[in-house]
Design a protein around this nucleic acid. Sequence first.
DNA 1: GTCTATAATTCGATAGAC
DNA 2: GTCTATCGAATTATAGAC
Lengths: 210, 210
Amino acid sequence: MQEIVVTPTSDTKEQIMNVAERLFAERGFAGTTLRNVVSEAKVNLAAVHYHFGSKEELFRAVVARFARPVVEQELALLEKLQAGDQVPSVEAILTALLKPCLEILVQNKDTLLTRAQFMGRCRTEPEPIKSIAANEFAASTEAFLDVLQRALPSQSRSELYWKLDLVIAALIRVQTEAGQQEALLQSTDPKDIQNATEQLVKFLSPGMRS
Amino acid sequence: MQEIVVTPTSDTKEQIMNVAERLFAERGFAGTTLRNVVSEAKVNLAAVHYHFGSKEELFRAVVARFARPVVEQELALLEKLQAGDQVPSVEAILTALLKPCLEILVQNKDTLLTRAQFMGRCRTEPEPIKSIAANEFAASTEAFLDVLQRALPSQSRSELYWKLDLVIAALIRVQTEAGQQEALLQSTDPKDIQNATEQLVKFLSPGMRS
DNA sequence: GTCTATAATTCGATAGAC
DNA sequence: GTCTATCGAATTATAGAC
């Protein structure tokens, strides 16, 4: 009798994505070579093209793998926040936006802060890399703008737009600088993440109302 | 009688730096090739090495040319702000930080986006490029931290550090997005700049205190 | 100072054996 | 699926004529 073993992703494919995510985060897309990736992943150079087709497709796969759970969680939190036609507080909205992004750090201790740096890197990459990442996050951005409009009806959508944009810019900066000296986010300790989230919400919320 | 003509920089050298600044801003350090630069600058490839020695030294020169006048003006404004041992308000400090950057960059409409993007790039480049830029701005960063420490003595220097870092991140984001739809800064009209500065100060000041 | 020509590497991608 | 070997193009940097 034959044993059926489910292997959704080969070790090689996963290894490539893990190393690529870290190197893309540290050095950017252009600054990362496939030879750097395969060297650290201890796989053959040809394996990258066999599994992904090209360097850009590899980036696309890495973005999708980590962005989709984040967006999914953000939208779920927003849905929950508006249950029963509630109008959530600014603090609650910002927490729903920031917390999933910051908490994803704690999931895998090995990746430490590289996922955070990768997300920050995505927003500063030149085209066409930047758009690949932006498209993955577009759904949650629109949803947050809608909720903010309901929580702060006296402000124009334009005003809320640039304010939300600056909130995301702050989030990305916190992630990108995570772990460095005097940064807000120092470790993957859940208590540190919780503390950073609260301080960031306190820093940004008053400005949203003014 | 001989006319003494002062030519501090050759046309070639200046042309290379102008194009390099724009390409570094758009594509980052690794994403920019010297052939891209000399092609658009319409100079010979060897001229880069003759004038600068290497790609990294070219970047160093571009950073210095851009950063030094900005830092100089910021330090002068800070000096003036503290005349007579005054303790300036948070709003006054932030205005001193934001206004020169927004006004200087807007002086030349063509270079607005480039210089803003370049400043943003400098903060997200991998080492050792990042440190080259950080060192150029270190003096003004330290000075602003000192004044903030006097204005907000109850907060630790670490706290003020990441808050100042987020203020600068917001400034860069406003500059980078300038002119785009629903952006805070829409034009180079002085009244628009004044308005954007005030709104940005109002958005950020409450968070500095909390 | 500016140019041509080229050295010396490195890059992404592919062909084909196993 | 994994490997070796390699292609063609691109890269930074130099040498040397003018």
